[in-house]
């Protein structure tokens, strides 16, 4: 479904992502893990077009999308949620999700100008907020709600686009134990309903529990990939994590 070939980018000497090849198959739930600064966020940004790769190319459903702008990729059903939440601060949570739910209409400015009908988008947005358990704050402005709400709103906003491939960057960060477990279950459910998902997470317990396949990124390159429990048992993977922890201590 998605294929990245030889992707690379450097930030002033730091090779954040270096010659990465990866494939995501239709219908799978893949976990992408790696120590802090491994390049996970950067890799997602390269794949979705937030950043232009210095090397390599991206194919989505057989089409080369390396030069396709982000909003077009989102319209094709290839959606990213940001690690750092990016709400529309002055809008309510509901309005945030509505804009995405109406993406058919807002796609072209002239069509958007001609349309004032809000009900369908509103209904869908409300349903999504309910599904994510944040409907109680639907009418609160985004700048006034806690982080956990924003993280879930962001996922609702992404789902409103009816993505076929969803890339989630640390959706569990900042949630407590039960919240995280419930959220992970939701991700499994979405996947079962047919959305292909790539999940970047530091919550290794939850990723290994729900992912069908794990990819480990280290220093901007793929270090290991395969069945989660086998990957986690590998020595080089453990060393990569421990090495960073030792350096941080």
């Amino acid at each position: 479904m998605l294929e990245g070939v030889g992707l690379g980018i450097a930030f002033g000497g730091v090779r954040a992502v270096n010659g990465v090849n990866l494939r995501v198959e239709r219908g799978e739930l893949a976990g992408l893990i790696g120590p802090n600064g491994a390049g996970k966020t950067t890799l997602l940004r390269l794949l979705t077009g937030v950043l232009a790769p210095e090397a390599g190319s991206v194919r989505f459903e057989g089409k080369d999308v390396t030069r396709v702008p982000i909003h077009r990729r989102a319209q094709l059903g290839f959606v990213l949620t940001h690690q750092i939440v990016r709400p529309f601060r002055e809008m309510t949570l509901l309005e945030n999700v509505m804009v995405a739910a109406a993406s058919e209409v807002t796609r072209r400015p002239w069509r958007a100008l001609a349309s004032v009908e809000v009900w369908p988008a509103r209904q869908r947005a409300l349903a999504l907020l309910e599904r994510l358990g944040i409907a109680d704050a639907a009418d609160k402005p985004a700048h006034s709600v806690p982080l956990g709400y924003l993280k879930r709103m962001q996922v609702a906003r992404a789902l409103a686009l009816e993505p076929r491939l969803l890339m989630l960057d640390e959706p569990l960060a900042g949630l407590n134990y039960t919240e995280a477990a419930r959220f992970a279950d939701l991700i499994v459910q979405l996947n079962a309903e047919g959305t292909t998902i790539v999940l970047v997470e530091h919550n290794l317990g939850e990723v290994t529990r729900i992912a069908g396949r794990l990819l480990v990124l280290h220093n901007g390159a793929i270090l290991a990939e395969g069945e989660p429990r086998e990957v986690m048992a590998r020595k080089d993977v453990r060393d990569a994590y421990l090495g960073v922890q030792a350096a941080h201590a």
Binding site: H71, A74, V99, V105, T106, A112, L113, S115
Partner: peptide
């Protein structure tokens, strides 16, 4: 209209607006 809401999205956070199409 929806144009107004989309304008709002562009005004408040361009990058987020892009990522929702």
């Amino acid at each position: 209209s929806w144009m107004g809401r989309a304008f709002g999205a562009v005004a408040q956070d361009e990058d987020a607006a892009r990522s929702i199409g």
